[in-house]
Design a binder for these strands. Structure first.
Length: 874
RNA sequence: GGGUGUAUAGCUCAGUUGGUUAGAGCAUUCGCAUGACAUGCGAGGGGUCUCUGGUUCGAGUCCAGAUACGCCCACCA
């Protein structure tokens, strides 16, 4: 193999698609084709919503999952990364409704339920195809033959069965785990659907605050139209202003005549708000409803599910709440019932997460999951597996957040009044309800509502594995790592845990890893409207997948947000190119084959011993950091070794030392190890280089490097001997530094004298390195000691004196050396203080004390030599 | 209001069970056609580790408090 075959600059575009195809064709993404392996490993990949495209946040998650998958595959496990897509109920329906409105000017009602469903289905299948290609572009080593969609019939079946099972879960008081109930729910008038708490957003808005005359009260409200549904006035129990009125009934004049309210005392009331008295509308406010339940107040619904005033609202019937508010305020003003109006009242308005329409709290018949059922308390069971770490959470700090969230969870409203999604298998006839998969017979009408999307995706961990009889379920459940963005923790992780525990009686996964969010360079959330998003495909096109992968893997820590800009991706593009060139050099140097397998230890130089020891250490560090989910740290260690140790030092050394046989063995081994260690991070470039090494197997399924694999080459421990090379490095750096500081022309060669004292014997063999590694030395005299020239640029490191014979500007040289002296003196003072402290000597570990003493002695020696040199200069 | 997190170089962040003169990348300064790479190489500059107290022989690291910023949840009629 000649070096000329490999281009100088690595071009990902020419490589990535080709490599991906080789991987796919190999079949090794499918664990069935890794039949000789025993230990199983699975990550079920979170399904993105099949209605759009992948953004950089998805990319970050997938890259992390792929990293784990590839790492474990190289550890010799039978690895399954199982991909899929989510139908994303409300979101997709909204997206598609907008689309047909825009493109065809029609609504879902024009199409009818069945046609509409079919069209969205086709739309999702189409988007899935597109997104699958994006995932492949990222290098995701997933088994596409197992890809799932939340609406695949067999998955839906399992989901429906779960619901039936929960309906049939009845405690001794007759309460079902899945039940239908009338509750105040978040109602989106535009979507005409109930929303879960998590689907509601709170926007700060400016509105009006109306101070209204209310019988004996004056009270403040932002929603005067709800006065028609009032049944009480509430005050704080400690509020002296109203003490005498509590428990009494008053007739209140209103726009539809007088009505009666009861005055009650409740701790929920904030005495400092308005006049301290509030009107209570149990049917259209969550807090009011709670107060009403506590005080057994009657409830009076006045707003219906279309957001309009109901028939019981007299002349206001049929108006929207907004229209009604204006009309009622006008009428109240006429009647003199408005005290005054505050214009700039800032309140948190609840809006629909999907369409931003203000939500109406209304009482409605909905299906719920009781999360604290007597037979099986979902929240308690979930709490248990998290607090005792059956499911380990990474980063650990998220455990607290998770537990806190579980403690505050309410019953889960799972019905949605939309068409897109699995329809709830409840059947009605003459006021009777049956819950079962198939229609009970003629004249039974199925529930119109569909399931909340999370009811499907919450079962993703086992539906994808074909629960309960599927081979995959038996082989791979529970899966190893579940990875998701920290923003969907409450939505998804909790639901998967409770549903899995209930249905399979097992945890869904052993580890739960949260990635942070990716923000733009300035730390702002990326969004389409701001146009500050980083498009993964665009970046891949520009810098290559490997660069994109590194940019999301390094410099981030679990659960913490990360700022990402194009320059970061570019810098990793540069690094990938560096690795490419390192490989080129090594391949060129070692030639096609290295026949020797075992090193003759006698022929090793100190540089060899140093790099071997570093390389071994690297394997340990990368492996332990990956095991500890410190992906970033593992990557940084690799980067540091690759660039600073291997390229900047060892490759340079290899150009000058002539123990060819040993060098070739070492270079080859380290290159191969590096490719392997890097592979989970940057699979494309590593596989491409690997293909140039005449290997039988793909790097994809190669074995992860181990210390044992080094022992076959060199089983000696070289840690202690590598310090000779470190000393050499120090000398070389010092010489380069001296040259730079004294502005010696790079082309100008100088004579150097080094007095190494006790280090002489060790350094003797490294003369060639000191002379050649960009030190610009024409002649080197290395001795134990000797005559100390005054006309030379001078420094001393670790007691080793260095003289560069060159013209010396005495004044400048004095200044430079005195500066150095000052630094050292300061350092010595600190050390002495520490060592003069009796407590330190007494209490610190002896090892630390010895270390400090050694440092002091060494620096003191340097100082005395520097002083001698200074004297000579004067 | 409840929960939770962050604060280290101009920027983005590492910093493991407390122990090197606190590190990296980007940016910046100086220099360099050098043979794998100018997507490169060599050498620098740049830090009161937010503040105040405490524990300790020793604190960027542990504890308490303060300040600032952030996120999640709940939500005010």
């Amino acid at each position: 193999m000649s070096q000329s075959e490999l281009p100088k600059i690595y071009d990902p575009k020419k490589v990535e698609d080709k490599i991906y195809k080789i991987w796919e064709d190999s079949g090794f993404f499918n664990p069935d084709n890794l039949s000789d392996r025993k230990e199983k490993y699975a990550n079920i990949l979170p399904p993105p919503n099949a209605n759009g495209e992948l953004h950089i946040g998805h990319a970050s998650g997938y890259v992390t999952m792929d990293l784990l998958g590839r790492y474990n595959r190289m550890l010799g496990k039978k690895v399954l990364l199982l991909p899929g897509k989510d139908h994303a109920g409300i979101q997709t329906q909204v997206v598609y409704e907008k689309k047909i409105k825009k493109e065809r000017g029609i609504s879902r009602h024009d199409l009818g339920r069945d046609k509409f469903y079919q069209e969205i289905y086709d739309f999702c299948i189409d988007r899935s195809q597109y997104m699958r290609n994006q995932e492949k572009k990222l290098g995701l080593s997933a088994d596409w033959s197992r890809e799932k969609f939340t609406l695949n019939p067999n998955l839906v079946n399992i989901v429906l069965e779960t619901f039936v099972q929960m309906y049939n879960e009845v405690d001794n008081e007759g309460n079902r785990m899945a039940y239908k109930g009338k509750r105040i729910i978040n109602w989106c008038p535009r979507c005409a659907s109930a929303l879960a708490d998590v689907e509601v957003e709170h926007e700060e808005t400016t509105s009006k605050l109306y101070w209204i005359k209310y019988g004996p009260f004056v009270l403040a409200t932002s929603r005067p139209e709800t006065k028609l549904g009032d049944t009480a006035v509430a005050v704080h129990p400690d509020d002296d202003r109203y003490k005498d009125m509590v428990g009494k009934k008053y007739m209140i004049p209103g726009v539809l005549g007088e009505f009666e309210v009861l005055v009650i005392a409740d701790k929920e009331v904030d005495m400092s708000f308005g006049s301290g008295a509030i009107k209570v509308t149990p049917a259209h406010s969550f807090t009011d409803n709670e107060i009403a339940i506590r005080h057994r107040l009657p409830s009076r619904q006045i707003i219906d599910e279309s957001g309009k005033m109901m028939a019981n609202c007299g002349k206001y019937a049929g108006m929207s709440t907004k229209e009604a508010r204006e009309a009622i305020v006008t009428d109240m003003q006429k009647m003199g019932l408005i005290d005054h109006i505050e214009d700039n009242y800032i309140q948190n308005l609840s809006v629909c997460e999907r369409c931003k329409t203000p939500i109406e709290p209304i009482p409605s018949e909905q299906w719920f999951i009781n999360v604290d059922h007597k037979n099986f308390s979902l929240k308690n069971e979930a709490r248990k597996v998290i607090s005792n770490e059956d499911i380990k959470i990474h980063p650990a700090s998220f455990k607290k957040i998770m537990l806190n969230w579980i403690d505050n969870v309410h019953d889960w409203c799972i019905s949605r009044q939309i068409w897109w999604g699995p329809r709830i298998p409840a059947w009605y006839k003459d006021g009777e309800i049956k819950v079962q998969l198939d229609s009970p017979g003629k004249d039974w009408v199925q529930e119109e509502d569909t399931f909340d999307t999370w009811f499907s995706s919450g079962q993703w961990s086992y539906t994808t594995l074909e629960y309960p009889e599927g081979k995959d379920f038996k082989d791979f459940y529970p899966s190893n790592n579940m990875i998701m963005g920290r923003d969907i923790l409450p939505f998804w992780a909790f639901r998967m845990i409770i549903l899995s525990l209930y249905k399979t009686k097992q945890i869904p996964f052993k580890n739960l890893y949260f990635t942070g969010l990716i923000r733009d360079e300035k730390g702002l959330k990326m969004s389409k409207s701001k146009g500050n998003g980083i498009e993964p495909l665009e970046m891949i096109e520009k810098f290559g997948t490997d660069a994109v992968r590194l940019s999301v893997l390094i410099g981030s820590s679990p659960g913490n947000d990360m700022n990402l800009g194009e320059t970061k991706i570019e810098s990793y593009r540069n690094f990938v190119n560096k690795l490419w060139n390192i490989s080129r050099f090594v391949i060129a140097k070692i030639g096609a084959n290295v026949t020797e397998e075992k090193i003759d230890e006698e022929n090793l130089t100190s540089a060899d011993k140093w790099i071997i020891s570093k390389a071994k250490n690297l394997i340990t560090e990368v492996t332990t950091n990956l095991e500890k989910y410190n992906f970033s740290l593992a990557g940084e260690k690799l980067q540091d070794f690759t660039k600073n140790d291997f390229a900047d030092w060892y490759l340079e050394v290899a150009k000058f030392e002539d123990n060819q046989t040993e060098k070739n063995i070492i270079l080859k081994k380290i290159l191969e190890d590096l490719l392997k260690l890097w592979h989970p991070f940057i699979p494309f470039v590593t596989e491409e280089v690997w293909s140039n090494l005449n290997k039988e197997k793909l790097l994809l399924i190669e074995a992860w490097p181990t210390l044992e694999s080094w022992n076959e080459i060199s089983d000696k421990n070289h840690d202690t001997e590598s310090h000779i090379f470190i000393k050499t490095q120090t000398i070389i750096t010092a010489i380069r530094n001296l040259r730079a500081e004294n502005k010696i022309e790079p082309t100008k060669k100088v004579k150097a004298i080094i007095y190494a004292e006790t280090n002489f014997d060790e350094l003797k063999n490294n003369e060639i390195l000191i002379t050649n590694l960009r030190t610009g030395i024409s002649e080197l005299i290395l001795a134990k000691s000797g005559e100390k020239p005054a006309d030379a640029i001078y420094t001393i490191v670790d007691g080793i004196e260095i003289y560069l014979i060159s013209e010396v500007n005495k004044e400048k040289e004095q200044q430079r050396i005195q500066e150095e002296l000052r630094n050292l003196t300061k350092y010595v003072a600190g050390l002495e203080q520490k060592l003069n402290n009796v407590e330190f000597i007494k209490k610190a570990p002896s090892q630390i004390v010895a270390q400090e003493k050694e440092k002091l002695a060494s620096v003191k020696l340097n100082i005395s030599e520097i002083k001698k040199h200074l004297e000579k200069l004067e």
